[in-house]
Design a protein around this nucleic acid. Structure first.
Lengths: 149, 149
DNA sequence: TCGCGAAGTGAGAATAGTTCTCACTTAGGA
DNA sequence: TCCTAAGTGAGAACTATTCTCACTTCGCGA
C-alpha cells in the first residue's frame, strides 16, 4: 500500500536509481535511504533503515527494489556476510568496481583496475573476455590514516 | 561411515586438495571426482557425481569437504547459479583467477589480470588493497573457435 | 596390540535468506 | 471514469547451507 503523502515519480534521483521502472512512494523512500547507508549492507539492514522512515514496508518490497536497482546499475553486490548478500550503492554510473574496506566496512568506488593490455593476455590464450566482476579488499584512506596515526 | 576398502591418506593428490586436513575415504573419493567435473558446478552437482562412485555419501560431508578444499585453495567460488554457489576446481596452486565460459560453462584458470601499476592507482587515492577477487566472463578458446567456424 | 583423543561421517532437523503467491491498491493513459 | 499494468504487504514456501548427534575411524604413543 503506497503511502499517500510521500513524494514519488518525478524525483530525478530515483529515476537514475531504478532505470525505467515505476517509482512508487516506497521505492522513493528506499532511494533516499540507500545513499545514506554507510559501507556495505544486507537486504535486512536496508529493510531496517527504510522501515525507520516508512514503517510497515515489506521485506519483499525491499528485495524487489534491490533487484530493480541492481538492474539499473545503482546497486552492486560486493560479496556476502553470514550467508546474506552484501550490497553497495553505486554513486557513479560509469564502469567501475568496489573496494571493500576491511577496517570500517565502507565501500569505495574505484577505477577498473584491469589493464586493457593485460586483459588481452587472456585473448592471446584464445579466450574472449566479455565482462568481469571485481571486488578489492583492503583499507580505505580513512582507516589507513587512522592505522598510521 | 568411511568405506572400508577405499584408498585414503597417502594419496599425493588429496593432500594438495585438502591441505593439512585429514583425508578419509570419502574425501579421497571427492578429490577424485572434483578434477573430472566439467566447468563450474554446485555442491549438489558434486554430491550427485560423488554419489555415483560412493553411494550413500552425505550432503553434509560434501559441504565439509568443499570448505576444506576452499581453505586449501583447491576449490574456488566463481559466482552463483539459481541461488547456489558455483564452484570450480583449481588445477594450479599459484595466484590466479577464473574465466567462466558463457558458452559451455567451462572454467579456465587465467593469470591475474590486474596490473601492479594500475593497482597502485587505488593506492594513490589513499587506499591499500590487500586482496582481490576477480571472475571474468566470456568465451573459452574452444567455444570461440566453434563460433568462428 | 591396545587405548585414547581428535576428527570425520551420515542422517536429518534446523536455520535463514530469498522468492513466490494472493488479494489489493495505485498510476497513468485513453 | 475506465482499464490495465505494475507495485504493495503479509506471510507461506522454497531451498541452500549449517548444525547436532551418535557413531566410526585415524593417528600416535605406550
Amino acid at each position: 500500500m503506497p503511502h499517500p503523502d510521500a513524494t514519488h515519480g518525478d524525483c530525478a534521483n530515483t529515476t537514475t536509481l531504478y532505470g525505467r521502472a515505476r517509482v512508487s512512494a516506497q521505492r522513493a523512500a528506499i532511494a533516499e535511504v540507500v545513499p545514506l547507508m554507510r559501507g556495505a549492507f544486507t537486504a535486512e539492514d536496508l529493510h531496517r533503515a527504510v522501515a525507520a522512515h516508512t514503517p510497515g514496508i515489506g521485506l519483499a518490497t525491499i528485495y524487489r527494489a534491490i533487484a530493480a536497482m541492481q538492474e539499473a546499475g545503482a546497486l552492486a553486490s560486493v560479496g556476502e556476510r553470514d550467508g546474506s548478500a552484501l550490497l553497495a550503492a553505486c554513486a557513479r554510473n560509469d564502469h567501475h568496481h568496489h573496494l571493500v574496506c576491511t577496517g570500517c566496512g565502507r565501500v569505495v568506488g574505484i577505477e577498473c583496475p584491469i589493464d586493457e593490455a593485460t586483459l588481452n593476455a587472456a585473448e592471446r590464450e584464445g579466450h574472449l573476455v566479455t565482462s568481469h566482476q571485481i571486488v578489492l579488499y583492503g583499507l580505505c584512506s580513512r582507516c589507513r590514516q587512522r592505522e598510521g596515526a
